[in-house]
Amino acid sequence: MTETVSPTKAWLMAARPQTLPAGAAPVIVGTGLAVHEGVFAPLPAVFALVGALLLQVGTNFANDYYDAVRGADTEDREGFTRVTAGGIIDPQRVKTAMYATFGLAIVIGVYLVYIGGLPIVVVGLASVVAGITYTGGPLPYGYRGLGDVFVFVFFGLVAVAGTYYVQAVTYASDPLPLGVPPETVPVAAVVAALPAAGLSTAILVVNNIRDKETDAAAGKRTLAVILGYRLSRIEWTALVGMAYVVPVVFWADGYIPAVLLPLLTAPLAARIGRTVWTRTEGEALNPALEQTGKLLFAHSLLFAIGLAAPAFV
Rank of each mutant, 00 (worst) to 15 (best):
Q18F: 06
G30P: 08
L33H: 02
H36M: 14
E37K: 07
F40E: 10
A45I: 07
V50H: 03
L54N: 10
G58K: 08
Y66H: 11
D73R: 09
T74H: 11
G79E: 14
R82K: 05
V83L: 11
A85R: 04
D90F: 09
Q92N: 12
T96N: 12
A97D: 04
M98R: 04
F102A: 02
L112T: 13
V113E: 03
I115R: 15
G116T: 00
G116S: 08
V128S: 11
V129F: 01
G131V: 03
P138Q: 06
L139C: 10
P140G: 06
G142A: 10
R144V: 14
V149D: 00
F150C: 14
V158K: 02
V160N: 02
A168S: 04
D174C: 07
L176V: 14
P182D: 12
A188E: 00
A193P: 07
P195L: 09
A196K: 07
I203M: 15
L204M: 02
L204D: 01
L204N: 01
L223N: 02
V225Y: 02
I226C: 10
R230Y: 09
E235V: 05
T237H: 14
P247V: 13
A252T: 01
A258W: 03
P262S: 06
L263W: 05
L268P: 02
A270H: 12
E281D: 13
A288H: 06
L295A: 01
L295C: 03
A298M: 12
H299A: 09
F303D: 04
